[in-house]
Structures are given as structure tokens and as C-alpha cells.
Nucleic acid binder design. Structure first.
Lengths: 203, 203
DNA sequence: TGTACATCAGTGAACGCGCGTTCACTGATGTAC
DNA sequence: TGTACATCAGTGAACGCGCGTTCACTGATGTAC
């Protein structure tokens, strides 16, 4: 079933995976084309058979990350059990779990500084994940009285911001905190949803 | 009043300021000692009269950033008007304003990946800003009934996470949002404080 | 099945570049008398 | 005020390194007959 190509086999994907490991280790800025090539047991020049250069390889890593992330989020909401609210509450945790489980993808997506719009293959995939989150948030806020119903795009931006902040400061970074990142995020989002009126005011 | 040194004047600070501009332009990873030297009209080797190397220069930039940030936060809370709550609400905005006004400092502090603990001159200053925020949060949560009173260190971590997330995703990053970062953060923190019970449930 | 040929993935050497860092030096500044 | 000397901030050249990228090539694989 594994169709081997001419020489190496599937060098393209092997390079992506090597890059993934390197990015997770040293960050997206520390990742180099040459090292990725070496890790795939290949000359740097060979990379140019599959990518136009360093940046396109990095962009492909990010693109695959968005693919995985979008699938994850879609699945979480399609099977939104026991309730849409509970599923949405889990969003932040999904974000955090993704950052833990796919650090290379996460860094390429959110810490590399590359602009999704500049890579035509990446933009639509990135948009998909975002739109799922927004629709879920829209669905939720419909339970609120109209006069204090923030748009779904705002709610999902809030949750995304807090999740990303926790990842960068307390999962990744040196910022010490007496609380594990998961707890920090769970409590933070809980308080936020209570503030929205989606959870009862007392415990 | 401006005491000129031997040749250049105050090269040490001139280098810090050159670095600041470069970091703001290209990020902390893109900043190089050689370019900073050139921007200060000096040979790269001259840098070694004032710093042990590239990383120490970067660390000094971050240290000065923490100094400014700590002063800013301290001032905001000492004159906490019209109320401690209002002052605390403004915390996030102060964070965001700092990121806008001092982008080079901000990046050196939070995006360079350097560990404050590794730089003895930096750690205490970094700790000062954090402790002010925590004490302010502690003061606030004392208004809450004991059974739902999260520790100040948790509340300030939540606010810090959301602020940082907004900066990275919506101020800095390419993530488009229909809302300006300031609005996103103000609404986010408002909802959060409402969830804490520090603001009335309705508008 | 066997042979001649076309394709093209990966090689190996080379390029120009900018990096951080070192070192012996030089010459402007500060100081002692 | 003038002179001899000490200091030390900044110079200029050099280093070894790894980077991304290019190019003519080679030889394993696929294909036509």
C-alpha cells in the first residue's frame, strides 16, 4: 500500500515531518531548511524538487496544522454532547490540547509570523476552523436576551485570545504560575461564560 | 548635563535604543548584534565593551521594558480612580497600550523566548510588575463572598492571558477580526469581571 | 521477455552572504605632577 | 599652564560557521516497442 517513489519514497511528507520535529524543538525561527533536509537523509538541494523554498515548506507545515485543527474542532461540535454549551466550554481545552499534542503545527500556525493570506493553499483551511468556532458561538448566544447578545465572532475571539494567551505565557513560556495551564484555562472560560449569562451566577 | 563619554557618548544606551527599533521592525529573532552596532554608527566589536554578547543586549532591552511596565502599572493602581475596580478593569488596556507604545520592549519581554530567571538583573524587575497586579486582584476579590473567591494570582493570570492573546492574535498577528483589539479586550474583560460577580449581571 | 530510451528525484560542489565573536591595535580623553 | 603618562572606548581585519539557493550531473525508475 505504501507506494514508494523514485528514490526516497515520499520525501515531501518526510520533509514536513522533519520540519515538524525541528520546529517543536527550536521554534519556527530556529528551523532551517538545511537541518530539515539532513533529518530526512537528503541533500538540501533535494528540497527544491518539492518546495519552492524554505518558506513554502514552513507554510505546508502550518497548512497541515490547520487541517488537523479544523477537523478536531468540527468533530467536537458535531458530536456536541452533552450540550452545545458543554461542547463550547471544551473549546479552550481543545485549543490547549492541540498546542500540547501538535507543538510543531501550533508554532508554525501561530508563532511563525507568516501570513495565511499570502499562501493560497492555507487561507481556506485556516478560515474553516474559525468559521466553525464562530457558528458554535452564534448558536450559543442565541440563548441570550437580544439586548446583551454579543456576536459569535466576538465570543469566539475572546475564547481564542484567552486560550492562546495561556498557551504562550503558561504552557510554553517561562512565566511561572501556581496553577497548571489546563486549570487556568478552565476556570477562566468558566468565569467568562458565567459573565455572558450562559452559566448560573452561583456555583 | 549630557556627560559625554570617551568617544561616542553613551554608547550603551544608544545600542539599547537601536536594538529596540530593530526588534520592533523584525521581531526579536530577526534582531542582530551587527545591525544594532551599525545603527549606532559603531563597529560590531565595540558592542563587547558594554555587553558580553548579543543575548545580554537583548536581555537589557527586556529589563528596561519590565522597568517601564512595572512603573506604569504601579502608577495606575496607586492612583486607582475612580475605584479599585475601574483601575483593575483598565489593566488589560494598559497592557495593550504598552504593547502598542513600546513594541520593541514588549517583544523582547514576551516574544524573545528568553528566560527571565537566567538573567539576574531582570528577574526582580519582572517580578515587581507581576506582584502589583496580583495584589490589586487580591484587593478586588475580597469583595466577593468567600466561597467563590478565586486567588488574586489566578485572576491576574486570566486577565494577563486574555490581554496577551489579543495582542498576539489581533494586534500583531494577521488574524482578522471585525473588532479593533481595544474593543475586543474591553468587552472580554468586562464579561469576565461580570462572571466574577464584580459587575452587575445586566448592563 | 528483452532492449533502448526518456524522465526526473536526488547529488555534490559551489556561490555569496551575514552572523557572532576574537584580537592586536590606536588614538582621544582624563589625570598627576 | 604645560607636559608626560595611563587608561580604555572603539577600530579594522580576520575567523569559522551555517544559511538559502543554483546548477550541471547521474543513475534509478518507468515506459514504448
Amino acid at each position: 500500500m505504501t507506494k514508494r517513489g523514485y528514490h526516497h519514497g515520499n520525501l515531501r511528507q518526510a520533509l514536513v515531518e522533519a520540519a515538524l520535529r525541528l520546529i517543536a524543538e527550536k521554534g519556527p525561527q530556529g528551523f532551517t531548511l538545511s537541518e530539515a533536509a539532513k533529518a530526512a537523509d537528503v541533500t538540501p538541494a533535494a528540497v527544491y524538487r518539492h518546495f519552492t523554498g524554505r518558506d513554502e515548506l514552513l507554510a505546508e507545515v502550518a497548512r497541515q496544522g490547520y487541517e488537523i485543527f479544523a477537523a478536531l474542532v468540527e468533530y467536537a461540535f458535531d458530536g456536541g454532547r452533552p450540550s452545545a454549551l458543554a461542547a463550547f466550554e471544551a473549546t479552550g481545552q481543545a485549543y490547549l490540547a492541540f498546542a500540547r499534542k501538535y507543538p510543531g503545527h501550533y508554532m508554525a500556525m501561530f508563532e511563525s509570523g507568516l501570513n495565511p493570506q499570502a499562501w493560497p493553499e492555507m487561507a481556506p483551511v485556516a478560515g474553516r476552523a474559525r468559521s466553525v468556532l464562530e457558528r458554535a458561538a452564534d448558536g450559543l448566544s442565541r440563548h441570550l436576551p437580544e439586548e446583551r447578545r454579543p456576536p459569535g465572532s466576538m465570543v469566539s475571539a475572546h475564547v481564542r485570545a484567552m486560550s492562546h494567551g495561556v498557551v504562550e505565557l503558561y504552557l510554553r513560556g517561562g512565566s511561572a504560575s501556581p496553577f497548571p495551564p489546563e486549570e487556568l484555562l478552565e476556570t477562566g472560560i468558566g468565569i467568562y461564560l458565567r459573565g455572558l449569562g450562559l452559566l448560573p451566577p452561583d456555583r
